[in-house]
């Protein structure tokens, strides 16, 4: 439960996630990608906002936090979800941002909050 008394979902221990590692979870049908960058953990929906491709296996630079869709090469900053480059090098601002999920770190566990702005979690 979180502070508001709503349930949350424990995803993994923070120490399990290595620096630069990506790990995908499915929670109530929602895909959640966790990444650790410079010690901080981020959670995004791994769905390219150009055509819905699962980008969890796209090229990822753990230093800059930029992930590239393997299909049409759109790029996103995974920490903010902001699209930097569109498909095939077009401007990034033709696309909506990636969805970010709210997480909470508690007792060395990553918890996905239940009161997300998006989806059915």
């Amino acid at each position: 439960m979180n502070e508001a008394g709503r349930p949350s979902f424990s995803l993994c221990r923070t120490s399990e996630l290595q620096e630069g590692e990506r790990r995908k979870f499915v929670v109530n049908g929602n895909e959640v990608l966790l990444v650790k960058i410079d010690g901080e953990i981020f959670a995004v929906e791994p769905m390219c906002t150009h055509d819905g491709t699962d980008i969890s296996r796209g090229k990822f630079d753990p230093v800059s936090g930029i992930i590239e869709c393997q299909k049409h090469f759109a790029r996103f900053d995974i920490r903010t979800g902001i699209p930097l480059v569109g498909p095939f090098g077009a401007d990034g601002d033709t696309q909506p941002p990636l969805r970010l999920y709210k997480i909470r770190i508690e007792n060395d566990h990553v918890h996905l909050e239940a009161n997300q702005e998006w989806g059915v979690i």
């Binding site: 769905m47 906002t49 819905g52 033709t94 696309q95 909506p96």
Partner: peptide, 13 residues
């Protein structure tokens, strides 16, 4: 154009 595309992609997703 860009606003239209963002709307389109949001809808398709």
């Amino acid at each position: 154009r860009k606003a239209g595309l963002r709307k389109l992609f949001t809808h398709l997703l």
